[in-house]
Design a binder for these strands. Structure first.
Lengths: 191, 191
DNA sequence: GTCTATACGAAGATAGAC
DNA sequence: GTCTATCTTCGTATAGAC
């Protein structure tokens, strides 16, 4: 039997990830997090003595680790399959939320008022870029191209999710996916 | 002598664009806008009787038109120069703000709580995509490729600005620029 | 067009009991 | 670990004078 060290804490972090992705940083208030998670009121500053920033940092850290875990599962695949897997994750987010959700790390980046929180977001993005570059290299892309191609894939995925949310249509997202496949194919041939 | 129909109104809209790009939607409060613009307190609901949403809609509309005007100035250029011009605009935003500002339309998209405001953001993005596609076509890209390539350029620029803000470095932005140039070059050759 | 005053709610945060 | 009560600040919005 596994001991539940702190169930309400993890439920709050989980809810914060979802609320950040849907409504942004300022709208992810303690009141919203408590309602969404069902966690008890009195446990906020017990679990997060440093306040909201600590909760948000934990949330984007979790979101960051989940994306890394997804990437890990794609290691060893052909570069094209790696890209498809990564895009598939974001497509699922758009579909499951009916264009109502995006990336929690991006939401924090564009609204953060605290330098440490912004730096945390930057570290997460950098981790994604580096891990994806490794996977692309393992999938047949040259070492000279993989880092920049990885950054293109992450930047354009993030942007595509925003465009599709705003337009409430998969059209922008799928156009980006199509062009990324062309780019990866060309890079694979060059490699 | 030109009549100043409403100077404080346009100053408020101008300030809202800047504050949205720097601090996001919720942080773009009337108090901040008034302080930044120097507009008088009593004129808020005179100029914007529908409240904050009306101010924000005017702000992203202005930002949208400015980007269109920049694109218009690039019409007739080679596709590669069009892309360089578009990227140059975003690079200037990052540089002038020391990585403190991004895209006001993106900021609204990820934090909007009002469907009309989200739809307004979507229309702006769609307008950019369509105009850029025209320019690419005029610059030598085939009609079959131009729309999707335009969307890739806009999505990846938006994402690259976010990554560079978070990492406080031009590295992600410049990697994306490099890869976009490769993609546009390849598309030009195919055309 | 601009002013002051004010209502009202929500936000983050703290104190002290249990 | 969780509760209630409370404080302070800030947000949007309205009313009515000038």
């Amino acid at each position: 039997m596994i001991v539940m060290v702190s169930d309400s804490r993890s439920r709050m972090v989980e809810s914060a990830v979802i609320l950040l992705a849907k409504h942004g940083l300022q709208a992810t208030s303690f009141a919203e997090v408590l309602e969404h998670s069902g966690a008890p009121r009195g446990s906020i500053y017990h679990h997060f003595p440093e306040g909201k920033d600590q909760l948000i940092a934990a949330a984007i850290s979790l979101a960051g680790e989940r994306a890394i875990a997804l990437l890990d599962g794609l290691d060893g695949s052909d570069a094209q399959d790696v890209v498809d897997g990564f895009l598939g994750m974001w497509r699922a987010v758009l579909r499951a939320s009916d264009f109502g959700a995006g990336c929690s790390v991006l939401a924090v980046t564009v609204a953060a008022d605290s330098p440490p929180l912004l730096a945390a977001a930057g570290e997460i993005f950098r981790g994604w870029r580096e891990r994806l570059a490794e996977l692309l290299e393992n999938g047949g892309i040259t070492r000279a191209t993989a880092p920049a191609l990885a950054t293109l894939i992450i930047a354009s995925s993030e942007g595509a999710v925003v465009l599709s949310r705003a337009e409430r249509s998969f059209a922008p997202f799928d156009q980006v996916g199509e062009q990324l496949r062309v780019a990866v194919d060309a890079a694979s041939r060059r490699g």
